[in-house]
Nucleic acid binder design. Structure first.
Lengths: 191, 191
DNA sequence: TTGTTAGTGTGTCATTTGACACAGTAGAAG
DNA sequence: CTTCTACTGTGTCAAATGACACACTAACAA
């Protein structure tokens, strides 16, 4: 049983047949470090399930400065939803920071799946809803906790991200400068 | 035709019958300034459509400090999704800052609606998806733009929020102190 | 009227932060 | 091995920020 099946089995009650049916719509991809899932200017026509690996989701602001939007650590889904959903050109890019195992679901197959059965429409709704709850929580965390607290949480909960991403990218993710993150790290050598 | 019908008509293609059917599940509420939609500790068993009015969505962190999570300005939906979806006790509170017109959909009716027809399941999925895209954009804005830029955007796009919320609450929403927001306002008297 | 309360405007000051500069290091490529 | 490149570590300093303090105003109740 692969990571995708395990994820679906634990998060939703699906019969073995349903599990098999849904997983067969995904294509497994072994993506070495440095693989570009999508980049600025392209239409993102797939959603990826990250079974294993760390991914860097970023964009460039109007001054050409790189901003880290997210550091994904599987298992979780990853796409540019606005591009995937509306067919717009993406403003973001996403690259693997470690060798990764991904499962790709193309938009064609996704759309077909949604139309097949109420069950799959509700399935998609639940996944989107869970993602929204996660994002709302992230927004709450950003406005409530200090950068130091968030860094320590990251060290505790996602050591793989700390290992794989550069200080500059982590600093950008936390919304501070490379130097300030360095001060925080020096202060918390024990962590 | 009321604001809810107008919103649904513009955001989704619905037949007049469908429009009538869905809107009839909502209850219209005239909520004077100071009305509490939900508060910390209660299970939020309804989703609200804000037809008109400004609402303050906030919580208290572990130090007992009030943090503004959102300042809603209709037309838009408002609930504590995690509480509504999972039946958990809410950590947040939501209060009207102006006399408001709301449309309330209880969880019972929502659940029944979802089961009725694929159409309503997909309808809910689309609304949740749009909300998620909005939240992702908000998260991007928070990490990309300066507080001053965000304040000026707020003045430009949501003058009602600026008029209705206190300086302290807006500062908290932007992630800064009352005093720093005051400096920004002094610097931009023209705005 | 007089308190009372909540919110605003503003000055001072210590602290934090970001920007800049540069040395050190590790890994890749020749 | 040497060179190149990217990243890390670190010091200095000016600027931004938050905390504190207090006067002022408006709304409301006694």
């Amino acid at each position: 049983m692969n990571a995708l099946q395990l994820f679906f089995k634990e998060s939703h009650q699906l019969s073995p047949d349903d599990l098999h049916f849904i997983v067969n719509h995904f294509e497994m991809i072994s993506a070495p470090k440095g693989t570009i899932l999508f980049h600025e200017g392209m239409v993102v026509d797939a959603v990826y399930f990250i079974a294993e690996g760390v991914l860097h989701h970023f964009n460039y602001n109007e001054n050409g400065e790189k901003t880290t939007l997210d550091l994904h650590n599987g298992p979780c889904f990853c796409t540019d939803l606005e591009s995937f959903s509306d067919g717009k050109k993406s403003e973001d890019s996403c690259v693997t920071l470690t060798d990764s195992t991904l499962f790709k679901l193309t938009k064609d197959k996704y759309d077909a799946l949604i139309k097949t059965d109420v069950k799959w429409s509700n399935f998609a709704k639940d996944i989107i809803e869970k993602t929204l709850i996660k994002m709302l929580d992230q927004l709450k965390t950003v406005s409530t906790k200090t950068i130091e607290q968030r860094y320590l949480d990251l060290v505790k909960n996602s050591p793989l991200i700390i290992q794989s991403a550069s200080v500059a990218d982590i600093a950008s993710y936390l919304g501070t400068s490379r130097e300030t993150l360095h001060r925080i790290r020096k202060k918390n050598i024990f962590a």
